[in-house]
Write a protein that binds this DNA or RNA. Sequence first.
DNA 1: TTTAATTTTTAGACAACTCTAAAAATATGT
DNA 2: ACATATTTTTAGAGTTGTCTAAAAATTAAA
Lengths: 220, 220
Amino acid sequence: MSVTLTEENYLKAIYHISQMTKTDVSTNAIAEKIDAKASSVTDMLKKLSDKGFITYIKYKGVNLTEKGRLTAVDIIRKHRLWEVFLVDKLNFSWDEVHDVAEQLEHIKSPKLIKELDAFLDFPTHDPHGDPIPDKDGQIKRTDKIILSKAEVGGTYKCVGVQDSSTDFLKYLDKHQIQIGTELTVKDIEDFDHSMTFTIHQHNMTMSKAITNNIYVKKLQ
Amino acid sequence: MSVTLTEENYLKAIYHISQMTKTDVSTNAIAEKIDAKASSVTDMLKKLSDKGFITYIKYKGVNLTEKGRLTAVDIIRKHRLWEVFLVDKLNFSWDEVHDVAEQLEHIKSPKLIKELDAFLDFPTHDPHGDPIPDKDGQIKRTDKIILSKAEVGGTYKCVGVQDSSTDFLKYLDKHQIQIGTELTVKDIEDFDHSMTFTIHQHNMTMSKAITNNIYVKKLQ
DNA sequence: TTTAATTTTTAGACAACTCTAAAAATATGT
DNA sequence: ACATATTTTTAGAGTTGTCTAAAAATTAAA
Ligand SMILES: [Mn+2]
Ligand SMILES: [Mn+2]
Ligand SMILES: [Mn+2]
Ligand SMILES: [Mn+2]
């Protein structure tokens, strides 16, 4: 009983939504993520439920079963490994990789992923700082915090992004912020929570819309 | 007007058949290659004709238009570049690559192929000795001949295979024959046209079923 | 708590691709 | 040339995944 490309995309969407909300995943939330109508989602939920990937109770939302979670995480593993490949080996920038990885993540070949993993020297994180699940579906949770929660005087290292849209990544590139960049919080405005940092010996101010989309780790 | 994965597979099949037969490509020949029923093929031929990829006259068979030929050759280019990648970088053997390449050839990203080509150092041939079309659809024809047409006393270098099924490639591996292997024709049986060679300082006999599937180039 | 707004599901339909069965066209053999 | 065999096309239908419109269930508001 194989998994179609469309089913894989639904499972991935359900996984990502459940990571955010931690409650039952709603039909509408999936519809928005997949860019389909709610009625289409309902149809698919029945199929995924029949196949044992989700538990689905009418009007109550869905949850991934262990089988569904493993399938979703395996696709995410492939997606992120391919993103590393594109950036490390094929000169893609981090804002160019997502659409291609969306296609490559559906290639079915266990040997391919095993060898790609080794070829890339077993990376633990993708170009956006997201952890790469291991072959058993384990994900290393990092102690990252959202930049908007940082404290004045603290020094932090950029470890990932929340929004990995091309627009946002281009903004970061323009201001020379990438994974690994260090920043020190100089000031936080009470009014709009905009923050001023020292980055690369320069001062820079970011709105909350920005700081809400950057993950950092506090440096000792 | 995009090309679906299925349409791509039909175009590729038509291209490969037309390379063999050089006459109009028949519905049945396509059906056999695609592993579908003739009625399904007829449906698809109408669609490909409407889209301008083939010229199709009922009951008369089909031919690729220039647009169709370029599309087919571009897929073949991608297929063969991925095969090189799998063998050169990911430790696949030449009998393992085809099925994965069948999937990878449909990934749509011009930058991906451009960069992959450069990463592989602009290979001209795939692991089976088949030429890789360039980005403009040009294919370098080699002066290869089929091994069964070789002459007693001549020395030849193996440059490709006709049949790239796993079974055949495993046979070649077992007898240590690969692209580049040199062989000298010692004898040809009149009765069944089986041929005896010197290969790697050893003598070996092959049936016509084998020699009909190996391409060689005569060494001066 | 009754009404209104929102969410979700059903009903019916369509596009892409496939099939079986039967009809039409073409090719082959005597 | 005529009958037979083969190839190809049509007719009708099934599957997957999508949609719109309308009904049913749930949630929010008055
Ligand atoms: Mn991505
Ligand atoms: Mn990523
Ligand atoms: Mn191949
Ligand atoms: Mn090949």
